[in-house]
């Protein structure tokens, strides 16, 4: 159940998308997100959807897996849809008590949820196809100029990649602890809000204890290998553009230009 949370997780399938330079994928995701925001009509999503579907097929990510990534965001999605549905003024087509549903509201709810769903799936596609290490390397590279104004780019990137790496570990741990407490008769599914919140305690306490232990272990292991931050650190696999990366950039520019000029 908890393992169903796939957001931010790497999904190895060895496809061409996986082998692209992470910087290309960063740029691609950026372009994709921009393209989601330039349009005000439903038709505007068509190229983005086609783009996403093509990439998903090329990356050989199971559709089921992609949809699973949406699940933790479902609440946010519904919340946004509801807000849009109820808050948009316009031509009223239904009214109960103080709740008014307008034509514009329906349209904007559908529009916003579609955009958010496409946004989430598109950005998770990047993490599905890029290892945390590659992500860090790309981030470090892209944000390198910020070093001039003393932003600790390397450290931030390292923190992010460790955080990403720890998501599955902590989920696994949570799963284990939940099972262990269930074996002791704990019940997480029934009861009111307060009872359920209370039932979280036997999970949260051991989880925090173990997270701190792990963090300590990791810090020690890094220190034992003489890690001392970004300064003077070289890479085992420096990022280098290949032909396919350049082709990808060209396609990307074509997509962006197309999105802006075709309508």
């Amino acid at each position: 159940m908890l393992r169903d949370i796939t957001i931010g997780q790497y999904y190895p399938s060895g496809s061409i998308i996986h082998r692209l330079d992470p910087r290309v994928k960063f740029a691609g995701t950026f372009v994709y997100i921009v393209s989601l925001f330039v349009f005000k009509t439903f038709w505007g999503f068509l190229p983005a959807a086609v783009w996403l579907i093509t990439l998903v097929i090329m990356a050989r990510i199971p559709v089921k897996y992609l949809l699973k990534g949406l699940r933790p965001m479902l609440f946010l999605l519904l919340f946004m849809a509801a807000m849009n549905l109820l808050m948009t003024p316009g031509e009223v087509i239904g009214q109960w008590w103080i709740i008014k549903v307008t034509k514009e509201g329906i349209r904007s709810a559908a529009f916003m949820s579609l955009r958010l769903a496409l946004l989430i799936m598109g950005s998770s596609l990047m993490t599905y196809t890029t290892t945390p290490t590659a992500l860090t390397a790309a981030m470090e590279h892209i944000f390198r100029p910020l070093k001039i104004i003393r932003v600790p780019v390397h450290e931030l990137a390292m923190m992010m990649s460790i955080a990403l790496r720890f998501i599955p570990i902590l989920l696994e741990e949570t799963d284990r602890i939940m099972k262990a407490q269930q074996a002791r008769g704990a019940d997480f599914e029934s009861g009111g809000l307060i009872k359920r919140a209370k039932a979280m305690l036997p999970i949260l306490v051991p989880l925090f204890v173990s997270a701190f232990r792990r963090a300590g272990d990791l810090a020690q292991a890094m220190e034992a290998r003489c890690y001392h931050g970004g300064k003077g650190r070289t890479k085992l696999h420096p990022l280098k553009y290949k032909l396919r990366d350049i082709i990808a950039y060209i396609i990307m520019i074509g997509y962006l230009v197309g999105c802006i000029f075709i309508p």
Partner: peptide, 30 residues
């Protein structure tokens, strides 16, 4: 769950109560 008691691998990592006796009471109370 009452009839089959399962002690997990490294069960010490699932202790959470403030005292030993309270932790042991968790199961029976449930």
């Amino acid at each position: 769950r009452r009839e089959v008691g399962l002690v997990f691998q490294y069960p010490e990592y699932q202790l959470f109560e403030v005292s030993v006796i309270k932790d042991v009471l968790f199961g029976p109370n449930n």
